[in-house]
Amino acid sequence: MLKKTILRVVSKFLIPFVLIFGLYVQWHGDFGPGGGFQAGVIFAAAFILYGLIFGTALLRRVLPSKVTRSFLVIGVLLYSGVGVFGIIFGGEFLDYSVLARDPLKGQHLGILLIELGVGITVAASMITIFCAFAGRSPNRLDEF
């Protein structure tokens, strides 16, 4: 862990705002610029900042690798699940118009859900990748 007091205090102060901004981008992707991809990256950036400042061990205590790995899959499942729901309700795969009585509302709901799926997967994969890199100790050799 780094002993830099300023870095630690400032990042503790910043991380909640980064998380809130990530959520804002996630839910407002349909009105302004933003969406699942960006939100996922911003959300992951908050955790990566935490990992950079406080060390990956603490990050792994907040988010065990099991959690990130399952979120990785949950996002994809949510996305394709919405698609399958489209079929169940009598439409085609990834047809959101049938999700609600009003096609427009259905489209809106579908887009929100799949953007959420995208966001979850992107965030989880970025955190996983970061942890894979940061979790290795430098210059350690594999025994082949």
Binding site: D30, H108, G110, I111, E115
Partner: peptide, 21 residues
């Protein structure tokens, strides 16, 4: 058809949902 202002999002998520998946 979609009813949301950001065309990029509606194309990304709805018209080209397969691609994004």
């Amino acid at each position: 058809e979609i009813g949301i202002p950001n065309v990029v999002t509606s194309v990304l998520a709805s018209y080209r949902g397969y691609d994004t998946l």
